[in-house]
Amino acid sequence: MREDEAFDLDPRAVAASFHAAAARYDEVAVLQREVGTRLLERLDLIKLTPQTVLDIGCGTGQVTRGLMERYRKARVLGLDLAPGMLLRARKRAPWLRTLHVVCADAASLPLASGSCDLLFSNFTLQWCRDLGRVFAEARRVLRPGGLFLFSTLGPDTLRELREAWAHADGYNHVNAFTDMHDVGDALLRARFADPVMDVERFTLTYADVYTLMRELKVLGAHNVSRGRAPGLTGRRRLQAMAAAYERQRRDGVLPATYEVVYGHAWTPTQELATSHGDGVATFPLARLRRR
């Protein structure tokens, strides 16, 4: 198996993992809530009055509820791969409002082109196997002047766990995460305008590595890549990994790094030129007409 194939994600496994995690997800989703709150706060700096808002990867709907409270006149849609997450999201909708939910893949949105004004996504893109397709779909469903605001995870995420497992065996135990600059390049290829990217690092601490691994399992965020070890991990390899992680212990606790990547971009109000890769570019006829 090639290295790039080893980190390929199975959408069915991702959906099954988060569906199973729905009942207990909120118990351990501390970082997800914090980053979601910070992402919502970024909307304070943006002048936008959306009619239709889509929350991609809405999970149990905690951040979706924040969107509904912020945009009380907007139609808010929650989209997720996991049916169990959507059931909990609907129960969390504020007041007597109904949260419209859609069970679908972010790479194949069942929405009409130009039907949304704001796309919001907190900690979901890292679970998408083809970021280019996801961004192309986001670009398609947004109206001109629409906003795509998101958070995802960068390559330093869980680096301590990745390094510890590297001492135990040759399998992939931690998902791969895309670099911030590559995410920005993917936005440009999808013909988004004015992409802005920045990064923030969080360090969570644990008494032992087993607590960290249990928390990841409860979140549904354990490894679902094709290169993961087949079957159960033997006790000897698990002990070797734990011993390697112990070398990271500081002040009596074990650190777990999360590299959080924030990004936003707009759909242009006028269609941009389309390059054909052969030195030829085409423009919409309307842009060539005299005003």
Score class of each variant (00 low, 15 high):
Asp55Thr: 05
Asp55Ile: 06
Gly57Lys: 03
Gly59Trp: 03
Thr60Arg: 11
Thr60His: 06
Gly61Leu: 08
Gln62Asn: 02
Gln62Lys: 05
Val63Ala: 13
Thr64Lys: 01
Arg65Gly: 00
Leu67Lys: 02
Met68Tyr: 03
Met68His: 01
Glu69Gly: 09
Glu69Trp: 00
Glu69Ser: 00
Arg70Tyr: 10
Tyr71Asn: 09
Tyr71Lys: 05
Arg72Ile: 12
Arg75Val: 05
Leu77Tyr: 15
Gly78Leu: 08
Leu79Val: 13
Asp80Ala: 09
Leu86His: 03
Leu87Ala: 14
Lys91Gly: 10
Lys91Cys: 10
Lys91Asp: 12
Ala93Thr: 00
Pro94Phe: 04
Pro94Gly: 03
Leu99Ser: 03
Leu99Met: 09
Leu99Val: 02
Leu99Lys: 02
Val102Lys: 04
Asp105Ala: 10
Asp105Cys: 04
Ser108Ile: 00
Ser108Asp: 15
Leu109Val: 09
Leu109Tyr: 10
Pro110Gly: 09
Ser113Gln: 14
Ser115Leu: 09
Ser115Arg: 06
Cys116Val: 15
Cys116Phe: 14
Asp117Cys: 06
Leu119Val: 13
Phe120Met: 06
Ser121Glu: 12
Ser121Arg: 10
Phe123Glu: 03
Phe123Thr: 13
Gln126Arg: 07
Trp127Lys: 05
Trp127Ala: 02
Cys128Met: 15
Arg129Asp: 14
Asp130Ala: 09
Leu131Ala: 06
Arg133Gly: 09
Arg133Lys: 14
Arg133Met: 10
Val134Arg: 01
Glu137Cys: 01
Glu137Thr: 06
Glu137Val: 02
Ala138Ile: 11
Ala138Gly: 15
Leu142Gly: 01
Pro144Phe: 05
Leu149Val: 15
Phe150Cys: 11
Phe150Pro: 05
Ser151Phe: 07
Thr152Ala: 09
Pro155His: 10
Pro155Gln: 09
Asp156Thr: 07
Thr157Lys: 02
Leu158Gln: 04
Arg159Met: 10
Glu163Ala: 13
Ala164Val: 02
Ala164Gln: 13
Trp165Arg: 03
His167Thr: 00
Ala168Cys: 06
Ala168Ile: 01
Asn172Lys: 08
Asn172Gln: 14
Asn172Asp: 07
Asn172Arg: 15
Asn175Ile: 15
